[in-house]
Design a binder for these strands. Structure first.
Length: 300
DNA sequence: CTTTCAAGACAGCGCAGTCG
DNA sequence: CGACTGCGCTGTCTTGAAAG
């Protein structure tokens, strides 16, 4: 059996050594003189040495006491600094590689701003983004292999996964400049009859938009499916396809290629973009800091 | 297997008094 | 004068049973 050690006794030992006086030591520790005296008695018993011999008005340390004072001071400093106060996180010095799991939309729209902010406040830190199967997200968050998940992930329902809403997305349509259907607004007939491009990156089991369509009975004529948003601008620019996609992405593309956005003929509910993390890291200083960084970027 | 609860044991406290 | 001791009180810990 591991011997039981009351570490408070070591504080009494140090206080008596520093003050040379049990009464003063008790005062320093905020305990009564008898309590300090009793603590000294327990120490004497456990170390098998008188530790302090009274010499006039002063308690003189024995060689045994002198032999353990230095190490005792070191141990208590380590406990106070590294255990009781907990590890501190200094963003200006960290070389940690933060791992963020986010959707392709998140990568396109938010990663540049997030990375810029990270470089500014934590110049030595690194950032790695990954995409994971929905089933693997919870486990990776639990293990700390992923610091946070960012995006629309309705499959993250584990009660130990905490979440915070950052932003609300809405969907819009995009087609090429000069498209036969280009104009103010699409009719539902034209919308359904048009050839659609569909983007599904596999980051969730069911898209909110698909569930919405299933509920309304509207069926789209999807003729091309892709897993990436990267190819969307050129596909739309060079065809008569229509695509439904997040407005933030559509706005980004509309600035760089010959495409335009057009309001869909149906009201599609907005969906929340959130950050997710595991309960284990709720109080972890580094994780708290990283989550706040993400929140701040979205607040801007 | 973990958590919760109650009962008993015990360590640590302060007070008062004694000892060196 | 300051360390130590005895006593009674209090809070914490341990243990075992029960519940989830």
């Amino acid at each position: 059996m591991v011997p039981r050690t009351d570490l408070n006794l070591l504080r009494v030992l140090l206080a008596i050594y520093e003050t040379g006086n049990v009464t003063a030591a008790a005062k320093q520790l905020g305990i009564s003189q008898p309590a300090a005296s009793a603590a000294l008695a327990r120490l004497r018993l456990s170390l098998g040495d008188p530790l302090f011999i009274r010499s006039g008005a002063r308690m003189e340390a024995t060689p045994r006491a002198l032999g353990v004072i230095g190490r005792t001071r070191e141990v208590l400093e380590i406990i106070d600094r590294d255990i009781l106060r907990g590890p501190q996180f200094d963003p200006s010095r960290t070389e940690h590689e933060f791992v963020l799991c986010l959707s392709e939309v998140g990568e396109i729209v938010f990663l540049p701003a997030l990375f810029e902010r990270l470089r500014r406040v934590a110049p030595k830190a690194r950032l790695r983004t990954i995409s994971l199967d929905p089933d693997a997200l919870t486990e990776n968050l639990h293990d700390g292999k992923v610091d946070a998940v960012l995006g629309y992930f309705p499959d993250l329902t584990d009660p130990h996964i905490y979440q915070q809403r950052l932003f609300s997305h809405d969907l819009t349509c995009m087609l090429r400049e000069g498209h036969p259907l280009a104009g103010e607004r699409l009719s539902l007939e034209d919308f359904c009859a048009a050839d659609h491009l569909q983007v599904r990156d596999g980051s969730r089991r069911q898209e909110m938009f698909d569930a919405y369509l299933a509920g309304t009975g509207v069926r789209l004529n999807v003729v091309l499916k892709t897993a990436h948003y990267m190819s969307v601008p050129s596909l739309i620019e060079q065809s008569d396809l229509i695509v439904v996609l997040p407005r933030t992405v559509a706005d980004l593309y509309a600035h760089s290629v010959n495409v335009q956005t057009i309001e869909p003929p149906i009201d599609i509910a907005r969906y929340d973009l959130k950050q997710y993390w595991h309960a284990r890291f709720q109080q972890d200083p580094r994780n708290v800091w990283f989550r706040r960084l993400i929140t701040d970027v979205f607040a801007e």
